[in-house]
Simulated scan of single mutants.
Amino acid sequence: MAEHCREIPAAIIADSEERSYVLKVDGYSRTKALLKNGECMTSTPFSVGGHIWVVRYYPNGYPKHCDDFISLYVHNESADAEDVKVKAKLKLSVLDQNGTPVPSYSRAIPLHTFSSKAPDRGYHDFIHKAGLEGSPHLRDDCLTIRCDVTVVKDILDEEARIPPSDLHRHFGDLLGSKDGADLTFQVGGRGFPAHRCVLAARSSVFKAGLLGAMAESSCSTIEIRDMEPDVFECLLHFIYTDSVPLLDVVMAGHLLEAADRYDIPRLKVICEEKLCSHIDSNMVATSLALAEQHRFHRLKEACLRFLVTPSNFKAMIASDGFDHLTSSCCWSVVEELTARIIRLNSAEDIIMTFRK
């Protein structure tokens, strides 16, 4: 019995490595006579994807009921370790006299995870011996089998090794340390050191004021009026870190105005979403007035949908918010709300109360 094996050089494809290994069994008849059912001939080890593999050839089959077949298995020796898992695809083929795989004697195994619990894959009925022995593929008592092993890298595991971006943390540290700050904002009696290049990169309004031809571009101290210090502090935090702390509804409203004032679109969306998801009879009038004054269309629509329900409308009428709405909004939004209620509810008693 003689065995001749050769490896075909590996091909590296994106996220995988493939290698072909050829097992040549010289003396097919003698091998079949010497090895009983369940006994195998093992190839020399070969490497694919950083793991060691062998081919196990059972000339009289394995297990017992397969003694009419040749069984063939590919074993991953690296998987003997409990913490090793290897994903691979296999293709097992008998080669003809020209070294070409024979389709009728070719079997493919889809992606399989080799581990200590499942270290090998193959076929117990790979070739029916009687059919092979009457075919032209057994020449000069020699059988040639090719094993293609493709090890697939776990892309998710590769990505997991890449740490998440910490750019926001570094800029947050820069804001907190005040290192390199080249201007200070005065807001409600508090000073806020900042970096004009960071502000200009994040806000078109700050860019025009700090890097443009305006008077503020050369100032080292800038006063911000009509804004509370805690609102400006939250605004700066978002500019540097692209994140906001947990917001209550009142702060979300103030921060939405600030985001609109300095043209920070993502912050506007975050704050508008917060207000849209926390509409109640106590805050709806204030939110609707804010939406109308600053053209926050999504917030306005959410408020109107809330108010067309008669019970919600009555609760808003009973609150102080109704006076705020009628005094701060133009009457177009009041008329729009009136029209919706009439169309959807025909609640004339509510409309009369509203018009008073």
Rank of each mutant, 00 (worst) to 15 (best):
M1K: 13
H4Q: 08
E7Q: 10
A10P: 06
I13M: 12
D15T: 07
E17Q: 10
E17L: 04
Y21M: 06
L23N: 06
K24T: 14
G27M: 15
Y28T: 14
T31H: 06
C40F: 07
C40R: 12
C40H: 12
M41S: 00
T44A: 00
V48M: 08
I52P: 03
I52N: 10
W53S: 09
V54T: 08
V55W: 09
Y62Q: 12
F69D: 03
F69L: 01
S71D: 11
Y73D: 08
D80Y: 09
K87D: 00
K89T: 09
V94P: 07
T100C: 09
V102P: 07
S106Q: 12
R107P: 02
A108I: 14
T113D: 11
R121Q: 11
G122H: 10
Y123V: 11
Y123G: 07
F126V: 04
H128C: 00
H128I: 05
H128Y: 10
A130N: 03
G131E: 07
G134D: 04
D140V: 04
T144I: 09
I145G: 06
V152E: 01
S165P: 11
S165L: 08
H168V: 08
D173W: 15
K178R: 14
D179F: 14
L183T: 04
F185R: 05
V187P: 04
G188K: 01
G188D: 00
G189M: 01
R190C: 05
R190W: 04
G191K: 02
F192I: 07
P193Y: 07
P193W: 05
A194P: 05
H195A: 10
H195M: 13
R202D: 13
K207I: 01
K207G: 03
K207D: 05
L211P: 05
A215I: 08
C219I: 01
T221M: 04
M227D: 06
V231R: 14
D242N: 15
V244Q: 14
M251D: 05
M251F: 04
H254R: 15
L255N: 09
A258D: 11
R261D: 02
R261L: 05
I264S: 10
K268P: 02
V269A: 00
E273R: 15
N282M: 15
M283L: 14
M283N: 15
V284A: 06
Q293D: 01
R298Q: 11
L299E: 11
E301S: 01
L307W: 12
L307T: 12
V308P: 09
T309E: 14
P310L: 11
I317E: 05
S319F: 02
T326S: 02
S328L: 05
E335F: 07
E336G: 03
A339V: 08
A339P: 07
R340D: 09
R343S: 15
L344Y: 13
I351A: 05
